[in-house]
Structure formats: structure tokens, C-alpha cells
Amino acid sequence: MMSKDIEFTTSLNATPVDQLTYEQAREELLQTVSRMESGATNLEESIALWERGEALAQRCEAWLDGAQAKLDAARKDAAQ
């Protein structure tokens, strides 16, 4: 089971997930999914890809949640 810690790294990509921009995390997530769908990985590698993919998805969601919060704050300020 994967930890909720989004600093997950693997030898597949040494950059900690929490240091990725939204665009970097999204691109790597797309590549990860593609690689998993290809079926060209062994079980150990598939598990590592899955865990990294989960962390990347959480990172993207965090970026989007942050953007939504900023929009909500701007709308609130504009309405006052």
C-alpha cells in the first residue's frame, strides 16, 4: 500500500514528486500510464510505476485544488 507522502521517488524518476510542476507531473503521469498499458514491465516494475502514478495523480490534484482555492478567493474579493 502506498504512503500518502507525495515525496515518493523511484529509480524510474529521481525527482521527488513534490518538486514537480503541474505540467511535469501530468506529463510523467501520462508516460507512466502508457508504459503500464504497454504490458512490457515485470511485476516489480509495474508496482513501482503504479505507486509513482498514484503520487503523480495526487500532485496534480493538489495543484488543481490550489488553483481552485485561488480562483475562489479572487471571486470572493471581487464580489466585495
Rank of each mutant, 00 (worst) to 15 (best):
M1T: 12
S3N: 10
S3T: 10
S3C: 07
S3G: 02
S3F: 03
I6Q: 06
I6T: 04
T9Y: 02
T9R: 11
T9Q: 09
T10F: 07
S11V: 08
N13W: 12
A14P: 08
A14R: 09
V17H: 01
D18T: 04
Q19V: 01
T21V: 09
Y22M: 02
E23C: 08
Q24H: 04
Q24R: 04
R26T: 08
E27P: 09
E27F: 14
Q31H: 11
S34E: 13
R35L: 14
R35Y: 13
E37K: 14
A40H: 12
L43T: 11
E44W: 08
S46H: 10
S46N: 14
I47T: 12
W50Y: 15
L56E: 04
L56W: 02
A57Q: 04
Q58V: 03
R59D: 01
C60Y: 01
C60H: 01
E61S: 03
E61C: 04
E61V: 04
A62P: 01
A62S: 09
L64I: 02
D65L: 12
Q68M: 15
Q68S: 15
A69M: 10
L71H: 14
D72Q: 11
D72T: 12
D72K: 07
D72R: 06
A73W: 03
A73I: 00
R75M: 15
R75N: 15
K76S: 07
K76Y: 05
K76L: 09
A78E: 11
A78R: 08
